[in-house]
């Protein structure tokens, strides 16, 4: 089926099974297949694809570093100073699981808070989920000194995972709930770190599948319709979630349900989920007694 691959690099991979088969038959890594296909479809070189990824990587690091140095609140005043609180604590006390754990949750909060105070972030895949992938990618890279080149490869690996998920499910809370935004981000983050840690193609796909599988059904019920509660604090949670998936996958633990079927079930779950729980703020946390009170305080009755 893939015998023409070398002659036709812009062939459209739309499932993880196809991606796996191409990687195995051509003896390539996921990022190699992805960057060649992207280059072919835009008629640009692999170097240009990697330069694009580097710009995003650079912007992710800038967002982290600005976020770490700010405690400015968002327009609504709901969020913005939690990363500061974390850093204050880590000045005197270490996290139970050590420095890398501290970095990951700090970076995720720093980026998400930068987002809600209108700072510049990378919507990867979306603005609401922008803290998850950078936190683990940059956190792990800084802790273990992975080269910029390795980081770019990891980001492209993650991007390809997100792209293939998006073939079946629009990555929007309004369409499929938060599983499609933060869930996808966590699956992408798992792929990036598994790539960095030298995981095989199979292990990378399993890491992603495991991360996504355990976030199915996640609702999108933001208080007052803003990307703040619960979105900001959800980012550090799902960054750590991705690391768990990587640890399992690197040990050879597999998702019993193949990745493509996990994505199918996310699409189905998203479709069955009430519109009231999909970015409309008509139910869930948004309509709790406190959620409604916060809304009234911000926007009036």
């Amino acid at each position: 089926m893939w015998k023409n691959w070398d002659n036709d690099m812009d062939i459209n991979i739309s499932t993880f099974e196809q991606l796996y088969n191409v990687c195995i038959s051509t003896n390539k890594q996921i990022y190699e297949v992805a960057q060649e296909a992207m280059g072919a479809s835009e008629d640009i070189s692999v170097e240009q694809v990697r330069a694009f990824a580097l710009r995003s990587l650079f912007a992710m690091k800038e967002a982290i570093d600005s976020g770490l140095n700010s405690k400015e609140l968002s327009l609504s005043g709901m969020c913005g100073d939690d990363c500061f609180k974390l850093q204050q604590r880590y000045k005197n006390e270490s996290a139970m699981f050590g420095k890398l754990f501290e970095k990951i949750i700090e970076y995720a909060l720093a980026t998400s808070e930068e987002n809600i105070r209108m700072g510049t972030i990378v919507a990867c895949p979306t603005a609401g989920s922008c803290g998850i992938l950078p936190a683990v990618l940059v956190g792990v890279s800084r802790e273990y000194n992975y080269s910029e080149n390795n980081q770019i490869s990891a980001l492209i690996t993650a991007g390809e995972i997100g792209r293939i998920i998006s073939v079946k499910v629009a990555l929007a809370g309004a369409v499929a709930g938060c599983q499609a935004e933060c869930g996808t981000a966590s699956a992408m983050a798992a792929a990036a770190v598994c790539q960095l840690r030298g995981g095989t193609v199979k292990q990378i796909l399993n890491a992603s599948a495991l991360a996504l599988k355990n976030l199915l059904g996640l609702t999108c019920d933001p208080v007052a319709g803003l990307v703040e509660v619960p979105c900001v604090k959800r980012n550090p949670f799902l960054a750590i979630h991705a690391v768990t998936a990587v640890e399992l996958a690197l040990s050879g633990i597999e998702s019993k349900i193949p990745f493509d079927e996990v994505v199918d079930s996310m699409a189905q779950t998203g479709a069955l989920m009430s519109p009231m729980l999909k970015e409309s703020s008509q139910a869930g946390l948004a309509t709790t007694k406190t959620g409604l009170k916060i809304k009234e305080n911000i926007f009036g009755k």
Binding site: S56, T120, I121, A123
Partner: peptide, 19 residues
């Protein structure tokens, strides 16, 4: 919906909070 590319997924660099 237009099909997303790899570039769409790892961008845009933008001022937050909402695409």
């Amino acid at each position: 919906m237009k099909k997303s590319t790899l570039f769409d997924i790892i961008s845009p660099v933008m001022a937050g909070p909402s695409s």
